[in-house]
Design a protein around this nucleic acid. Structure first.
Length: 725
RNA sequence: GCGCGCAUAGCUCAGUGGUAGAGCGUUUCAUUGACAUUGAAAAGGCCCCAAGUUCAAUCCUUGGUGCGCGCACCA
């Protein structure tokens, strides 16, 4: 009883969490190389690298918790566990963020600063951001191997990117060409199809007279160069017009020589069934123009201003130009009617929020449909040396079940995306990121991992889409293209755990890259978690000001409580709402666990040999129940049913072990009969051990602390973190 | 247009082919003897609607309603 006075009545995470974290770090067990030799079989998870654009939010916290649960469980199960951390340079987001800051503070743009200076400023920013993130991840109790930390833009990863680019180029999968791309005038770069977000907008829809026809448009400002008028070949209304027929029409800036084009892309029932086309600024028009070998004329420049083709409107921004043009059309009597309530969706940039202007630009692309020979394949359904496509790799790996997706329904969404997939535009007109490893000298083009020898070579100005480097993440982090031991042992990784919102951006691209470069899958399982929202179910956002720093919650309730409140009551792929009430509830549970330990320690007896104590059948049965429950929880963790596992353990620990078993056994603990007392004690300690082990993946701090208090391990390496499950 | 998800206690959400669960909230009582960050109990649910399958449906099937989301199209 003397000792017990030293234990406080409640678990204090502020002191204990820090102390426990130190014990773990000193043990070295986060690094699989330091685990006991009995840990043989590999189990690997690579942390989805958070963007170095700021701090982590609760969504990141959930991600870290789930992965830590998997890692801690498998470590205790005797696996050689690797959890490899890193951060993502997130080119677009990061550059935008820093540019904004500079503009706010100094009223300067990136062009004022120059490439070198901007990159220097970004480096300063990302270092700071990186340190914040690492600190946050550590506070979450992540048992992560910091000795292997990577950055998507560090030297090793840059080499991997250059190598990947070169290999894909040599295989003919990367090409450069003039294609219609999504141009973001605000960010000053192209973006991929996946980064475009459609926003519905009410706008005016103009019916304009175009010679004998009426055409309809929502964007009169693009119509200057429209010299082709297109209709469906089977449209009886326009049967008298022949494909290729020419006619003169009065248009915005005077007479224009129009050509009739017949194409099946036209929807006869939409509008008047006739349209004029703007091949430079519209994907469909571009395709029609390609089919009929028509001229392409640029109308709008990269800043959104009209070009000389617009005559008197030249140099005016399209936003300002539209009403002026409509005025002129009205004056000329070319406006037939205006539908004021037309709803159409405007393409905007998911990142910058600006309106996307399609443009024809010379860019680099990854060809997803081109056949190539896959030399060495471990992909089921694609034989070594056979011809395949990137699309096929992405499809077969999942369809054949080699990669499992939890929850299952995301498979459909994934396949649907693949079906609609076009070539991936990978070049960006940003300065921050992996510079494209291509050099030019006159007409000569050199693609290589290093710059070419000789004078006069100029490297491509553009950088690569961030997801190009992220796509390599599962193996670039393990040393690829070098043949490292880590790569051989830990790849493919066991689980990719991430949010469902980046299944296309990232999950699909990793499968693509790994398939092409390694002929293998990047991971065996994909677990997708939902978005963590606020108490009211709103997304966390800066504009709403509802952001929550996980560190503030940890400060108030402790890490274990935060972890439990994030993981309970959720199901895979579904969004969840976060409330502090829940966290408070689990803080109470941490205290409960602490007090269970405290109670047992208070009743502990020194100098007795637990091996000599015989237990009654009913006591044994109680212990067995705890063991069985632990195994059930383990199975649930293995099947990604974290909530179920946590719920069972919570309920058992509190409402069975504490409320019933301990209450019932109290008289025996007070008994004069030493045998009675010791057998009760042994049973409690045996059950507690099971409870601590099974709850450790969820609540690592308090369980480790109680273990230390109650079982008095003599060896500093005797920690619950590697206790045998 | 194609596809997906959700609908369960006052609120936020888990879950299951057979008497329905958690957190918070509400009511009553008890205890300062591990824990008031406690214990015991209670109130509160046509588990969205309809039909079907089944001995049995909140769960499976079909249809409907409401909400949310993804993709495509939008001249």
């Amino acid at each position: 009883m003397e000792e017990s006075k030293e234990i406080s009545k409640s678990y204090d995470p502020k002191i204990n969490d820090t102390e426990i974290n130190k014990l773990w770090e000193e043990s070295g067990f986060f690094n699989s190389d330091n685990l006991p030799k009995s840990h043989k079989k590999e189990y690997s998870v690579i942390l989805p690298p958070p963007n170095v654009t700021g701090t982590l939010h609760l969504g990141h916290a959930l991600m870290v918790v789930i992965q830590d649960i998997l890692i801690r469980y498998h470590r205790m199960k005797g696996f050689k566990t690797l959890w490899l951390p890193g951060t993502d340079h997130a080119a677009t987001a990061t550059q935008e963020r820093v540019e904004k800051d500079i503009y706010k503070k100094e009223n300067k743009t990136r062009y004022d600063l120059g490439r070198e200076e901007l990159l220097r400023r970004i480096d300063v920013f990302t270092k700071e951001s990186h340190d914040t993130i690492v600190n946050q991840v550590k506070k979450m109790g992540a048992s992560i191997d910091w000795s292997r930390e990577a950055f998507t833009l560090d030297e090793k990863r840059n080499f991997a990117v250059r190598t990947a680019f070169k290999k894909m180029y040599d295989a003919g999968l990367i090409y450069r060409g003039n294609r219609i791309v999504n141009w973001d005038p605000k960010l000053g770069t192209t973006i991929s199809d996946d980064e475009v977000e459609r926003v519905e907008e009410k706008t005016s829809f103009y019916y304009l007279k175009y010679g004998p026809f009426t055409i309809a448009t929502a964007r009169p400002e693009t119509k200057f160069g429209d010299k082709y008028v297109v209709m469906h070949p089977k449209d009886k209304r326009y049967a008298k017009y022949k494909n290729g027929e020419k006619l003169e029409v009065e248009w915005i800036n005077g007479k224009i020589n129009a050509t009739i084009i017949k194409d099946e892309a036209i929807d006869m029932s939409f509008g008047t069934g006739v349209m004029t086309i703007t091949p430079w600024h519209d994907k469909i028009d571009f395709e029609i123009a390609q089919r009929h070998n028509l001229d392409f004329e640029q109308i709008i420049d990269l800043k959104g201003k009209l070009l000389p083709i617009a005559g008197e409107f030249s140099g005016i921004h399209i936003k300002k130009a539209r009403p002026l043009i409509v005025e002129k059309l009205k004056a000329k009597g070319l406006v037939e009617k205006i539908d004021e309530n037309y709803i159409h969706s405007v393409a905007t940039s998911e990142r910058g929020g600006g309106v996307i202007e399609p443009q024809i630009l010379k860019q680099w692309f990854v060809d997803v449909n081109k056949k190539f020979k896959l030399e060495r394949s471990k992909i089921k359904g694609i034989k070594s040396g056979s011809k395949t496509t990137l699309k096929e790799i992405m499809e077969k790996t999942v369809k054949g079940g080699q990669i499992k997706i939890v929850p299952d329904r995301f498979k459909k969404i994934y396949f649907h995306w693949i079906e609609n997939l076009r070539d991936w535009c990978i070049s960006r007109q940003l300065w921050y990121g992996h510079r494209i490893p291509v050099w030019y000298k006159g007409e000569e083009v050199y693609v290589g991992t290093e710059s070419p020898k000789g004078d006069g070579w100029i490297q491509d100005e553009d950088t690569l889409d961030t997801w190009f480097s992220s796509g390599l993440w599962t193996f670039s982090t393990l040393g690829w293209p070098e043949k490292t031991k880590d790569l051989e042992f830990f790849h493919p990784t066991n689980v990719l755990e991430t949010g469902y919102d980046i299944i296309f951006f990232w999950v699909a691209r990793m499968i693509l890259m790994s398939g092409f470069l390694l002929g293998d899958i990047p991971f065996k399982n994909v677990y997708l978690h939902g978005i963590v929202r606020d108490k009211e179910g709103r997304k966390f956002s800066k504009s709403l000001g509802n952001g929550i720093d996980p560190l503030d919650i940890i400060e108030k309730y402790g890490t274990d409580a935060l972890r439990m409140s994030l993981i309970t009551g959720i199901s895979p792929g579904n969004d969840s709402n976060f409330s502090e009430d829940k966290t408070r509830g689990y803080r109470n549970f941490a205290t409960k666990l602490w007090n269970i330990g405290r109670f047992i320690k208070m009743n502990d007896v020194a100098d007795y040999d637990p091996k000599k104590i015989k237990l009654s059948a009913s006591d044994k049965k109680k212990i067995k129940f705890a063991v069985d429950l632990k195994n059930k929880a383990g199975k649930n963790i293995g099947n990604f049913k974290f909530n179920e596992a946590a719920y069972d353990l919570y309920h058992y620990a509190w409402h069975e072990f504490a409320d019933k078993i301990i209450e019932e056994v109290k008289p025996r603990l007070k008994s004069e009969n030493l045998k009675d007392k010791l057998s009760a004690l042994k049973m409690l300690k045996d059950i507690l051990f099971e409870v601590l082990k099974s709850l450790h993946p969820f609540m690592p701090f308090v369980t480790e602390a109680v273990y230390k208090e109650v079982y008095n391990p003599k060896d500093s390496k005797d920690l619950l973190i590697i206790a045998k499950w």
